[in-house]
Design a protein around this nucleic acid. Sequence first.
DNA 1: CTAGGGTTAG
Length: 696
Amino acid sequence: MAFNLTSSPFSVSQDSHLFCISSLVPSHLLHLKPPALNFPLKINPKPSVYVTHISLQEQPQTSNSEISQNPDEKTSSSSKSYIWVNPKSSRAHHLRKDSYDFRYASLLKIAKSLDICDPLEADVAGILETLGGRIVEQDAAVVLNNMSNPETAPLVLKYFQKRVKLSKEVILYNVTLKVCRKCKDLDKAEKLFDEMIEKGIKPDNVTFSTIISCARQCSLPEKAVEWFEKMPSFGCEPDDVTYSVMIDSYGKAGNVDMALSLYDRARTEKWRLDALTFSTLIKIYGTSGNYDGCLNMYEEMKALGIRPTVMVYNTLLDAMGRARRPWQAKNIYKDMLNKGFEPSWGTYAALLRAFSKARYGEDALNVYREMKQKGLELTVVLYNTLLSTFADVGFTDEAVEIFREMKDSSNCTPDSWTYSSMITIFSCSGKVLEAEETLNEMLGAGFQPNIYVLTSLIQCYGKANRTDDVVRTFDRLLELGITPDERFCGCLLNVMTQIPREELGKLTSCIEKANSKLGHVVRLLIESEDIEGEIIKKEAGQLFNDIGVDVRKAYCNCLIDLCINLNLMERACELLDLGLTLEIYTDVQSRTPTQWSLHLKSLSLGAALTALHIWMNDLSRTLENGEELPPLLGINTGHGKHKYSEKGLAGVFESHLKELKAPFHEAPDKVGWFLTTNEAATSWLESRRSNGVAAS
DNA sequence: CTAGGGTTAG
């Protein structure tokens, strides 16, 4: 069967078993390495030069060899000799692909020139002349399909309509509509549609799904709906793709209910929805916060016998990240690998985000290492995600290493987020010099310090007991015209709990400037020793009501610490009591018939000591009332491994309990728990009472 | 890439 020259030279028939390449082809074309293209190039007038020599004939003898000389042709003149290529071989695949690529590259070049030429018929025609006289309909579609200029594309369409015999004109309209979509130009798309109708060309599902997705990308979901509803009046019934686009449109518009009801409709109409639609549905559930809905969709998809794609997995992983369910992300990832899927860049990005959000530092680091090993480049956002997690979990050395690798990478430069994370990391780990160096580097790169950076620096200097530098940094904030926020004030307050008494005044005035209400409460605590407890409670209560829920506990902890440092236990008790009343602290004490417990997990040291003091008083009162203690008493300090300090609450508490001669002992099997029995506790509390050292 | 669906985030 000889190749038909009049048909498209590229439609290499799929059912043929062999290609045959005529030796007439110049040797450089035998390998079908396309010659260097010097645009403009006429690609159609002599297509035989590079393609039509691939002829297709049965050649059974050579079935087991990839390339061989055809014995029948060997003896004839060189002009008739052929090289036979098994079409199933990789060689044949390359030949076919190369010829295709060559044609495609030429048409691409034409599309690019049409994109940048003036929207004038003559200019457009000038470029299209290079296609030659006989233009194949498919070539016209390819050119338009690769254009992205909505001004010239209609002119190109017009040219083809005039010059090419079109059997399926709707296709050319559809690809031109795609150009409008690329440019998010719904008006032009609608105009084009009107023109189609005027010319009597019947739109099809492709026409509608393109316009609908155009409306979606223009963030005009109501327009998308309008077009969707218009379909039946043009004799089109929505199909699987239309449903998919509409589901996504509703999802993007935040109309989750409509998206899901459309999914139901598609199912009852028995459309076979594919993995991409499910990926869309999972995304909709994910962005609306219904994470179990995501998993259900995944199960439903599998139940329908639809094989997931990498994208489905990526969407699921992303949803599990948002849901802060890193363990589920891990399971899905394992599942994906077991099924033989190759993770993509998006897979790793989703995992990295999921682990970072959940502060799974080690796992995030492993993802990073795997990406590097596979040569996948991280973006600035991903680097920053990783570094901010490392700041949270205290991976100082790892952060330093990755910061360096980021600076070495070709496609990334640190931004203010990056510097901010690094300065935070150095500040929290007490590396004052490194923090200052990084600040200078940041300034050198042209970034102003922001409130995050200055907050970190204040912590840094506070920890190093450099009160004057704290004040200097505070002044810098004001000079930069930045308004101190609640977190910043919280840090100033926290510094006050760490510095000697005689330096407190320096920071009190800073705090007063930053937040007068807080300043007022602080001054009351430090300076008015014999003020009424009720007044403190009233003022502090007002303060707590004024500030955000997220900083309340931090403020309360600091104020109590300040009292403890100043030996004002009674005042500390009043503040703790206030904190309990306002539910800043919850479940500090718990009682079951067998065990009474004190939970100190999110309390600062001062607050914890205060809570212990109150608890001991409560226990003593129980005994005074002639009641029994339960068999077991326990104090839970939490595991005590604070990210940036070796000695957490557990360690400090252990020595404190020893000082008090309290009979509590660290539970060997329960980390962070100190336990004692009824008997031991009772005799200890009674000896304290008789010694007169019990509660004041 | 081959006339229709989504894609990269703090």
